[in-house]
């Protein structure tokens, strides 16, 4: 590798590189490293769940136990927040959780791009959730869905203000929903890269640098553990918020 090793670009890891160029109607829809990671995530997650449950054991093995725990985890989360009627959305929430979780975790591998560190991906997922909630809410409750914006027991004087706040908070949901995941993944990976960069920069400065590099190395190790936690946590938070939003579609009255 040519170049100056003391200069590390923490943004470099987020670059989308074309692997197979495809262009249709003026749009660049190339198969990129991001696309590859999406495919790997899906194949890995789907393959694991498929193979783990193929024996259909009454007494589950280790892999089957993991699948069942994941299933129960999401099912109870959805049932607790949206009730048994919300279970219609279970396949979607489960897919969402598995996709984000595996994409986040795969992003921890060196040279793997983190699919969810791109705002367009998280925004697309959040908008799908938003539209699904909106359509399902209108479908199930008709105009009664708009009771969501009118909390009961509010004085009439305050009503316009409260309704305005409720409407704005509803409309900004996809933004907070998507930026939360995107920013967490982006910031975590940048921080990790910056501290790792310090290690590289310091060690190139000789003996003093080697000693000085111990601290950022420790930080990088600690941050790696933290990032694994965040990878899971953000997938959980995304799925959890989706469950809460689905509850609004089913039970719009506060």
């Amino acid at each position: 590798m040519a170049g100056d090793p003391t200069k590390v670009d923490p943004i470099h890891q987020f670059h989308i590189n074309t692997l197979i160029p495809i262009e249709v109607g003026g749009y660049d829809i190339s198969f990129t490293n991001s696309s590859l990671l999406m495919v790997i995530s899906v194949v890995l997650a789907g393959g694991f769940l498929f193979l783990a449950t193929s024996s259909r054991g009454i007494v589950p093995g280790r892999a089957q136990s993991i699948s069942e725990i994941l299933y129960e985890f999401i099912a109870s989360m959805l049932r607790d927040s949206a009730g048994s009627q919300g279970m219609k959305f279970f396949p979607f929430v489960f897919t969402l959780f598995m996709f984000i979780l595996v994409a986040n975790l795969l992003g921890m591998f060196p040279y793997f791009i983190t699919v969810t560190s791109h705002l367009i991906v998280t925004a697309a997922l959040a908008i799908v959730v938003f539209l699904m909630v909106l359509i399902a809410g209108l479908w199930r409750n008709g105009l009664g869905f708009f009771k969501l914006f009118v909390p009961s027991g509010i004085p009439v004087v305050l009503l316009p203000l409260v309704v305005a706040i409720e409407v704005i908070s509803f409309l900004t949901r996809p933004i907070s929903h998507s930026v939360r995941l995107f920013a967490n993944m982006l910031a975590g990976h940048i921080t990790l890269k910056v501290f790792s960069g310090f290690v590289v920069s310091l060690t190139s400065m000789g003996a003093v640098g080697f000693v000085g590099a111990i601290l950022p190395l420790g930080m990088a190790v600690g941050l790696t553990a933290l990032e694994f936690l965040i990878a899971f946590l953000q997938a959980y938070v995304f799925a959890m918020l989706t469950c809460i939003y689905i509850n609004d579609a089913i039970h719009p009255g506060h």
Binding site: T32, S34, S35, M38, E68
Partner: peptide, 28 residues
């Protein structure tokens, strides 16, 4: 890079969803 990301997200996520909904989740 947005069109590419959106398209491939739709393809992979959609197929993943169908696979889980039709095969894996009923099985579990």
């Amino acid at each position: 890079t947005f069109p590419s990301q959106l398209l491939w997200l739709a393809i992979t996520f959609g197929l993943f969803y169908l696979f889980l909904q039709k095969v894996v989740l009923p099985r579990i």
